[in-house]
Every structure is written in structure tokens, then in C-alpha cells.
């Protein structure tokens, strides 16, 4: 049995529907554990104070904002190459979740930036890149909404996703070049000397796992909804043809 068997809508639904509550449960468990651990059981950092604790939301949401786009890129490619409807619908389902993650990352960044840099917003490369990513999500979602025929919409949004990915990466470099900013570098790379200490790292890891599970559950649930909508439409049209 190959992985492509799950591309059959019915098989996909049968497999994922019972799993969704468990994934939600796992996400809730990880998020409660990670956030309580991170918020109340870690020491305050010397130079950041208690505001540092927003990383437990900021970092995972920022990661998922990018990962969601990567997932959309992969599922779009699968749709264009193998024409599995579930793949296209999964990309459609992931976009609003990715946009929400982007907004959470931007908002927590602003809340964190206010005490740290003394401003809600700075045209810092990372913040700016996320703002642009948010615009890409908006355009992608708007294109899905604008087209009535689902197959045509899937094709066009997939091409947009491909082209958009190239330009998103270009924008990232352009923005970096345009303004070397205030934001600290990535603090999670495994080999970095100045990695944040384990005290903060472990609860953060739990939070990241929680966000991944939450994203997975939301996307599976939304994909399921999209599949049901398509099935309903297909049944209605079949009934119409039977009458005609």
C-alpha cells in the first residue's frame, strides 16, 4: 500500500477523522504544559526581563507561518503533478491557518518589541518579511475565493503558490539588503555558540511540538470540511443530471 492511497478522499477522511480529536488533545496537552512551564517555571532573563516569555508563542507561530507556506508549496506541486484533489484542498485549508500564524507572530513581535526596542513596529527585515508573507497569504486566499470552478481555482492557486514562493524568497533577500535590523538572529540552531540555555529551550520545544500538532489538527479538520463541501457539490450535480 502506498502513501498515494490516502489521496483518495474517502480513504483520507476515514483515516484522519478519528485521529483529529487525538491530535487536538495532544496539541492542548503540549501547549498547556509548555506555556505553564515557560511562563511560570523559568527564571527571568537578565537583559530581557519577563517579556522574554512571549517567545513561547512568538517563535512557534513564526515557524509555523513559514512551514504552512512550505506545506502549501509541496501540496500544490503534488496537485499539479499527480492531480490528487485532496492535495489541492489541503493547500486551500492550510492558507488561513498560515495567515493566522503570521498575524500571531507579527502581533506578539509588536508586543515584545514595544518594551525591548521602544517601538511597536520597526521596519526590521524579519518583521517586514513576515508582513510580506502575510500579503502573499492574502493574495493566495483571495484567488481561491474569486474562482468558482474548484479545479481551475486549484490549478491557478498552485501556480501562484509556486511563483509566489520564488518571489517570497527574493523579497526576503531584498529586505535583508535594504535594512539590517534590530532583530536578534535565530537562537535555535543546534550548533550556535550563543544558543539560549536549556532552561528556556525545553519548554520552547514543547510549545513548538504543540503548535505543530495544533496546525496539523486544524489543517486536517479544514481539509475534511473542504472534502465534504466538494462531495456535497458533486452529489447535487449528479442529482441534477439524473433529473435532466
Amino acid at each position: 500500500m502506498s502513501i498515494w492511497d490516502y489521496a483518495n478522499p474517502k480513504k483520507f477522511m476515514d483515516t484522519t477523522t478519528p485521529a483529529i480529536p487525538w491530535i487536538f488533545g495532544g496539541a492542548a496537552l503540549c501547549l498547556v504544559l509548555g506555556l505553564v512551564w515557560g511562563f511560570f517555571l523559568t527564571p527571568e532573563a537578565d537583559k530581557f526581563g519577563s517579556s522574554v516569555k512571549i517567545i513561547y508563542v512568538h517563535v512557534p507561530s513564526a515557524m509555523m507561518a513559514i512551514n504552512a507556506w512550505v506545506m502549501m508549496l509541496v501540496t500544490s506541486l503534488v496537485w499539479l503533478i499527480r492531480r490528487h484533489h485532496v492535495s489541492a484542498l489541503a493547500a486551500k485549508a492550510a492558507a488561513p491557518v498560515g495567515l493566522t500564524m503570521t498575524l500571531i507572530a507579527l502581533w506578539t513581535g509588536a508586543v515584545w518589541g514595544q518594551p525591548m526596542w521602544g517601538t511597536w513596529w520597526a521596519w526590521d527585515p524579519r518583521l517586514t518579511s513576515f508582513l510580506i508573507l502575510g500579503l502573499f497569504y492574502l493574495g493566495y486566499i483571495a484567488l481561491w475565493e474569486a474562482i468558482a470552478d474548484p479545479d481551475q481555482a486549484a490549478d491557478l492557486t498552485s501556480v501562484l503558490c509556486l511563483v509566489g514562493s520564488v518571489f517570497a524568497i527574493l523579497s526576503r533577500y531584498a529586505v535583508n539588503f535594504w535594512n539590517q535590523g534590530l532583530h536578534q538572529g535565530a537562537t535555535l540552531s543546534l550548533d550556535a555558540e550563543e544558543n539560549i540555555s536549556d532552561v528556556y529551550w525545553l519548554p520552547l520545544l514543547v510549545c513548538i511540538v504543540g503548535f505543530i500538532l495544533l496546525f496539523l489538527a486544524l489543517v486536517l479538520m479544514r481539509t475534511g470540511t473542504e472534502i465534504r463541501v466538494r462531495r456535497l457539490r458533486a452529489l447535487e450535480r449528479q442529482a441534477q443530471r439524473a433529473v435532466a
Binding site: 478522499p9 484533489h85 474548484p150 458533486a234 449528479q238
Partner: peptide, 15 residues
């Protein structure tokens, strides 16, 4: 004329 029970077309995967 195609039969309403046709197994072709993009709807077929969802029936």
C-alpha cells in the same frame, strides 16, 4: 450523453 453515474470527471473522486 454521459450517464449520470459516469465515473469520469473531477467530481467522480468525491462520489
Amino acid at each position: 450523453r454521459a450517464s449520470p453515474r459516469s465515473t469520469q470527471g473531477s467530481d467522480a473522486a468525491f462520489l
